[in-house]
Amino acid sequence: MDLVRNLFGSTIGRKLLMAVTGVVLIVFVIGHLVGNLQVFEDPDRINGYSHFLQSLGPALWAARIFLLVCVALHIWAGTVLAIEARRARGAESYAVKKWIQATVASRYMRWTGYVVLAFILYHLAQFTVGVAQPGTFKANLPHYTMKGAYRVLGVEVVRAGTDVLDVRSMVILGFGNRLVAVFYIVAVGLLSLHLLHGADSLFQTLGWRNHRWARGLRVVVTVFCAAYFLGNLAIPGAALLGVLH
């Protein structure tokens, strides 16, 4: 099939796959952060939210598989492009190496990407599979009884009095380990740096960027990345400072 060959086999096609999967991942990380920030509200919120996600069953699995496919495609395309780019450079490199206008974030995409990957694997091991810190895993978590109902868009999805996992305690326990909290902060910092180039670059790849609004895009992306980083910093930061307990 020409379509598959062009998308997976050409440099532009692979870059397009990176941009599209990048958009999916960006939407996911925003949703993930907004959901997690409920930890600062009444325990009913974050615990009800996580119970609701767990109760989705097959839909949750479908979403997980879809996200994993996106991550895999993103990394595959990025790695293949990086190998090809290195080969394209040729054997002899310049004696004087100079950057003219490439942004700092754009020069470290591969590094920030792979550290984020390492973090994703650890994160899944910790909170989804439960091998990294068994004490914080579902099976060993204390339970919590919902004081009120949890609603999504006004629809009641978890009833008051339901016995749910105490995810709030899990987060606090997990970040009680300073090393885990610091690794988390470093990783989201690098992800923010990844997005400082990525969220701008994807518009170029999709063909929607031009000089008329490149500057505006830059501002929006920078503000987004700063907000994303601060939002993510808040949770382990609060746990470390003992604000969250």
């Binding site: 062009n6 532009i12 492009l81 780019a85 394209a88 950057w99 490439a102 995409m109 701008d200 170029q204």
Partner: peptide, 23 residues
Amino acid sequence: LAMVSTMDGLGFGGCTNQYECSA
């Protein structure tokens, strides 16, 4: 389609949107 596939086939790398070229 032809120019891009020829470009790839000749061993040029892909674009990482860093704009060193236009500079």
